[in-house]
Amino acid sequence: MAEKSTPIIEMKGVGKNYGNINALRGVNLTVRRGEVTCILGDNGAGKSTLINIIAGLFQHSQGEYLVDGEAVQFSSPREALDRGIATVYQTLALVPLLPVWRNFFLGSELTKGRGLFQRLDIATMWEQTGDELHRMGIALEDLEQPVGTLSGGQRQVVAIARAVHFGARVLILDEPTAALGVAQSGLVLRYISAAARDHGVGVIFITHNPHHAYMVGDHFMVLQRGEVDLDAARSDLTLENLMFHMAGGAGLSALEHELHGKHNEGQPTLEGTAST
């Protein structure tokens, strides 16, 4: 396990309001080099709000967001990216009909020559794409093949490898395994682990799946209705415990109690326990 270094990202009591609606409250989060922080939660739990704040898409309303110890208030994803915070969204920002290497360098193409003779440095881009993918453990038969011909997991890995190659220090992965089968998810998880351990990237891994999270995570945060329901290091947590929280935690126990036990008079139990 990586020793405790200065955190790249540190959030203290971060919250977000949309008008009167309180989407996120009191989030403390630390992301260090080489660590995988898993953020779990149901739909609408506040995961997207949180990553959008980290990625620079939204600004937080309360609390402090520090990058390298310095308080920040990003006004665009570009600013976050310049600080080395990259997001790989579910759409991946890949172009299916374009060859792998062209996708890898899209928007940041390497060129040689000047002026009118400026042209793509294809050999170097091939080389670097191949090296980067190979290093991360996927061997493509042909970098000239369109990205659309790759499997879902391979596409995910190409997008992640691209972010790492272009200098990501913190990688936000938005449900990378959500649409994948078992084998494909394994490929992506292995790569998440490689990015963190071998490249020292701090990873924020957003997922629905506690099994996937427990396989690669160093630190876990479960969000529920905009609040932190669980915030624990791997050493303080079992998979069962994580699954329990993920499945709804105390709220679920109450539901179970309600369904199998006798009716509590009047007010539904679920609501009663969740709001404080």
């Binding site: 890949l94 899209l106 928007g107 193409e109 400026q118 042209r119 793509l120």
Partner: peptide, 17 residues
């Protein structure tokens, strides 16, 4: 062979990406 060419394919293939 040029950056612009790469962009043309990308813009037509998946503008959002």
């Amino acid at each position: 062979r040029t950056k612009v060419g790469n962009w043309i394919f990308a813009v037509g293939g998946q503008g959002d990406s």
